[in-house]
């Protein structure tokens, strides 16, 4: 195992533990917004797609990159906006 992999594995394991702990007693009304908020956070995949841009070559690579960028950008912008709309509703109701 390379030192880099060990460092990555450490970070990943600790991130998992933080993820388990960060969700505490959530009222049922917040379940869907919280799911949507978490969905928006994995939109960070857009950062990965941008990093991929440094390595792809050829038409096939560019097409794959464009499709991946489309998907990731849709996830991240749509995810945050729809979560915000859900929470706006929630606030006005309570």
């Amino acid at each position: 195992m390379s030192p880099m992999l060990l460092a990555d594995l450490t970070v990943f394991t600790l991130a998992l533990l933080v993820g388990f702990e960060v969700i505490s007693k959530v009222p049922a009304t917040l379940h869907t917004p919280l799911m949507s908020g978490a969905n928006a956070i994995h939109g960070v995949v857009i950062v990965g797609v941008m990093l991929l841009a440094a390595t792809v070559t050829g038409i096939g690579g560019y097409v794959l990159l464009a499709v991946a960028a489309f998907c990731a950008a849709m996830n991240v912008t749509g995810g945050y906006v729809v979560t915000d709309r859900m929470l706006a509703m929630f606030r006005s109701r309570s």
């Binding site: 970070v11 998992l16 533990l17 933080v18 993820g19 960060v22 978490a38 960070v44 995949v45």
Partner: peptide, 13 residues
Amino acid sequence: IAGGLVGAAGAIL
């Protein structure tokens, strides 16, 4: 980090 966070938080949720 973000992927692991969502993976674990999503499982609890």
